[in-house]
Amino acid sequence: MKIRLIEFAHGRSGDKGDSANIGIIAYDDIGYEILRKYLTKEIVKEYFSGICLGDVDRYELPNIRALNFVLHNALGGGGTVSLKHDAQGKTLASALLRMEIEISEEDYKKLKLTKKITV
């Protein structure tokens, strides 16, 4: 089953030099379990290929049901040097929330039961 992240999560992104960080936050525990299970470092790196030119770090914050991704070399040289319209990576969280992930039918059913918002 396919589901877009924005259907069960929100988030925020920003910059630190040439790295961008994206925090993705699930609305509930089931959502967080699904994020944790499916939103791997590899998937995120692949998704942002050509945008993030360096490594991707992934951290877990189960206490606030969030994953934090740090995308290295992702902002065209960083805040003040970058020629990008979005030099600070402010919209990268939205870009990631637009991602569609493939999840098992069982997980999908669980998620539908507790889902907080739809788009």
Partner: peptide
């Protein structure tokens, strides 16, 4: 929570 994850590295 959104502000907590703003511009952080290793939490």
């Amino acid at each position: 929570a959104e502000q907590l994850v703003y511009e952080i590295g290793n939490p």
